[in-house]
Computed example of a mutant assay.
Amino acid sequence: MIPTLPRAGGAHLVVLRNLWVHKGGSPWTMALFSIFEPILYLLAIGVGIGGLVGDVPGVEVPYAVYVAPALLATAMMNSALEETGQSAYAKLAFDRFYHSLIVTPVTVTGAVTGEVLWGMLRALITGTGFLAVIAAFGLVQSPWILLAVPAGLLIGFAFGAASLTFTGYVRGWHDYQYMQLIMLPMFLFATTFYPVTVYPEPVQLLVEALPLYHAIELVRGLALGRLGPSLLLNAAYLIVFGTLFLTWARRRWGRLLTS
């Protein structure tokens, strides 16, 4: 008799499989590779340019302290994107891993949910590693920053689901250049390096519609100890954004794997 699985369709088995594949490298090794680029940004812009900027007007914290939480949010986002983007595409197009998976009791829903959960876990590991770097640089302003790491689960959920949806439409590696056309401008303009108030009001509304803006605002608010209802709105945005894309990903991958 084929064993029955929980309602998630065996998503936990997908996460366990990915953990088994990565068993040769410790979580800290995984985090080290994920945080290398944001460390460079922190040194070059946060610390380097921060020495010229001083305190951020209107926020009244040193520039490096202002930038560090944004880079933390970005690092967690990139970890989720990596796992549900090109890594997932390789398993789909070359290993045919998912086609093999769904002939087992694991369902399409389980495969999709499992990959998003894995992206969330990777975001959590990366966030823990980068938080240690921020602390080592003396950029921690509030104990509430500890909540910024579990907040990475929401970031991993939102961007992991969106990336997995995009991967369902990818025709080849070159298509990921289109993702970069979206991600790079969003990284540069979503208040990573300066407040949203520097923009004209119409542009502010556009920036505030970006998912990375809400990820950064959530992490930055916790990191600076500036709690308020707006953080709940940021979290709600990420939950709704991720849920919509997870539903879309389930439908798209259902067609890919059962057609």
Results as ranks from 00 to 15, higher is better:
Ser163His: 12
Tyr176Glu: 05
Pro6Lys: 13
Pro200Thr: 02
Gly225Ser: 07
Phe187Lys: 01
Val47Gly: 07
Phe159Asp: 02
Arg171Cys: 00
Leu101Tyr: 00
Gly51Ser: 12
Val149Leu: 09
Ala88Glu: 06
Val15His: 09
Ser259Pro: 08
Ala162Asp: 12
Met30Glu: 13
Gly25Asp: 11
Ala88Met: 02
Glu217Arg: 14
Trp20Leu: 10
Val106Ala: 10
Gly54Glu: 10
Leu224Lys: 13
Trp20Cys: 00
Ala161Val: 04
Asn78Cys: 01
Phe193Gly: 03
Gln86Asp: 07
Ala136Pro: 06
Trp144Glu: 09
Met30Ala: 12
Ala151Val: 04
Met179Ser: 05
Thr74Tyr: 02
Ile2Val: 09
Val21Thr: 13
Pro27Ser: 11
Leu205Ala: 15
Leu124Asp: 07
Ala249Asp: 10
Gly114Asn: 05
Phe33Asp: 03
Leu184Thr: 14
Arg255His: 02
Ile155Tyr: 02
Phe245Ile: 04
Leu227Ala: 03
Leu181Met: 03
Ile155Asn: 08
Leu32Asn: 06
Ala93Met: 08
Lys91Ala: 06
Leu232Asn: 11
Ile45Met: 09
Gly110Ala: 12
Gly85Leu: 04
Val21Lys: 04
Gly160Glu: 08
Phe137Asn: 00
Glu82Met: 11
Val133Asp: 08
Gly242His: 11
Tyr98Arg: 03
Tyr176Ile: 07
Val203Glu: 02
Leu231Asp: 08
Thr107Met: 04
Ile145Pro: 04
Ser87Gly: 05
Ala209Asn: 00
Val116Arg: 08
Ala132Pro: 01
Val67Pro: 09
Gln86His: 09
Ile35Tyr: 02
Glu37Val: 14
Thr243Cys: 08
Trp253Val: 01
Glu83Met: 06
Ala209Arg: 11
Pro57Trp: 10
Thr247Arg: 14
Leu212Asn: 09
Gly242Glu: 09
Phe97Arg: 14
Gly24Ile: 04
Thr84Leu: 06
Gly58Thr: 00
Pro6Thr: 14
Ser79Gly: 13
Leu42Asn: 11
Glu115Ser: 14
Arg220Asn: 09
Phe166Ala: 05
Met183Val: 15
Asn18Gln: 10
Pro6Phe: 01
Asn18Ser: 13
Val207Glu: 08
Val170Gly: 01
Leu232Met: 03
Gln177Tyr: 10
Val61Gln: 04
Ala93Pro: 00
Ala11Thr: 10
Gly221Cys: 02
Met183Phe: 10
Ser230Val: 15
Leu43Met: 07
Ser230Glu: 13
Ile239Glu: 04
Asp175Ser: 00
Trp20Arg: 15
Leu13Asn: 04
Leu72Ser: 02
Ala44Phe: 05
Val219Phe: 06
Ala44Asp: 03
Pro27Ala: 03
Ala209Asp: 10
Pro195His: 12
Val14Leu: 13
Thr258Ile: 07
Tyr176Thr: 00
Leu153Val: 03
Ala135Leu: 12
Lys23Phe: 06
Pro57Glu: 05
Ala73His: 00
Asn78Ser: 04
Ala151Pro: 09
Phe94Ala: 03
Ile145Val: 15
Ser100Gly: 15
Ala215Cys: 01
Met186Ile: 08
Leu16Ser: 13
Gly50Asn: 12
Glu115Gly: 02
Lys23Ile: 13
